[in-house]
Simulated assay, not measured.
Amino acid sequence: MPLSEEELRLLEQMERALVEEDPKFASTLRGTSLRSVARRRAILAGVVFIGGIALLMVGVTVHWAWGIAGFLVMLGAATLGLAAIRGQRPSAAQPQQAPEAPTADGLTLIQGGRKQRRPKAPKAPKQSRSRSHGSFMERMEQRWRRRRESGGF
């Protein structure tokens, strides 16, 4: 018996939520790992980069426009390759997620995005050799007045 449209829609929503919540688990269920996908992308980027070098060499001998196209191909392949390599991290280097906090309605709140920085402790004011009273502009005005009064020009 086939699924109804509403059941298909709910199933798709559950799949999207699973992928967003735990991409490693979702890729395991699909049969491919994120590491193998990143490795394939990096290898493909390397092959395209070599093709860009060949295109650059053709551009040197034939026409300068081919050389520019080869350079752009190399640049794009290097960018994609580095993004693929940086995307694969060992599982031990993965950041630990904060525990989920239940809200008033019984749902859990998952913290995402960048890690929050800890507030820095206030620094003790520096004591310089001269008087450090007032703001920077006030000190500059005091220096200016002293120079004018002493005829330092």
Results as ranks from 00 to 15, higher is better:
12 E>W: 10
35 R>I: 02
73 V>M: 15
149 E>I: 12
80 L>A: 14
147 R>V: 15
134 G>V: 04
91 S>F: 04
97 Q>H: 12
76 G>L: 04
81 G>S: 01
27 S>E: 00
116 Q>S: 03
26 A>R: 05
10 L>W: 11
16 R>L: 10
130 S>L: 13
104 A>T: 05
31 G>H: 04
13 Q>V: 01
30 R>G: 11
106 G>Y: 02
133 H>A: 14
53 I>N: 00
146 R>M: 14
122 P>C: 04
95 P>S: 11
138 E>K: 14
106 G>F: 00
84 A>G: 06
120 K>F: 09
16 R>V: 07
24 K>V: 12
108 T>I: 02
4 S>H: 02
59 G>C: 09
125 P>G: 02
150 S>P: 10
18 L>G: 08
92 A>V: 13
104 A>Y: 01
4 S>G: 07
85 I>L: 06
78 A>G: 10
21 E>L: 14
86 R>F: 08
5 E>V: 00
64 W>N: 03
121 A>D: 06
14 M>P: 01
14 M>I: 07
41 R>G: 04
21 E>C: 13
13 Q>T: 01
44 L>H: 06
35 R>L: 06
140 M>Q: 08
131 R>M: 12
5 E>A: 05
136 F>L: 05
106 G>W: 00
144 W>I: 13
70 G>L: 00
16 R>C: 08
12 E>Y: 08
95 P>E: 05
143 R>F: 14
146 R>W: 15
83 A>K: 05
77 A>V: 04
76 G>R: 09
132 S>G: 06
38 A>K: 02
4 S>T: 00
133 H>S: 11
129 R>G: 10
